[in-house]
């Protein structure tokens, strides 16, 4: 019997690592992947609470989150491809046309 709190802590750790890599990484695709990591951590939290409250709605929300994540991944990657075509770089520090 595992306390629900442990699942939540796991989700928190994953989420924090996601934030960390979001801030540290320079490759834009990697940053995107860290966003997906964060979303997964949130999904885990929802499922844990759905299990605790015996409500199925938590899992349905996860379902929707997955749908949105998929759509977002598609569109985001399309944007990245478009940027790569013009800037020829995936380094986020170089995508700085708006600087100053």
């Amino acid at each position: 019997m595992v306390p629900i709190a442990y699942y939540l802590i796991l989700a928190a750790v994953l989420f924090s690592i996601g934030i960390g890599s979001f801030l540290i990484k320079r490759n834009i695709i990697t940053i995107f992947m860290s966003i997906e990591l964060m979303l997964n951590a949130v999904n885990l939290t929802f499922v844990a609470f759905a299990h605790q409250w015996k409500l199925i709605h938590g899992q349905i929300f996860v379902f929707f989150v997955m749908v949105v994540a998929a759509a977002e991944a598609a569109v985001g990657l399309a944007i990245i491809i478009a940027i790569f075509r013009t800037r020829q770089t995936l380094n986020v520090d170089n995508i700085n046309l708006m600087k100053n």
């Binding site: 306390p3 939540l8 802590i9 928190a12 750790v13 299990h51």
Partner: peptide
Amino acid sequence: LTYIFLHEKAALGYAR
């Protein structure tokens, strides 16, 4: 977050 969740460990219950 760890602190919070451990604080609430008893109230959250157990997973089956």
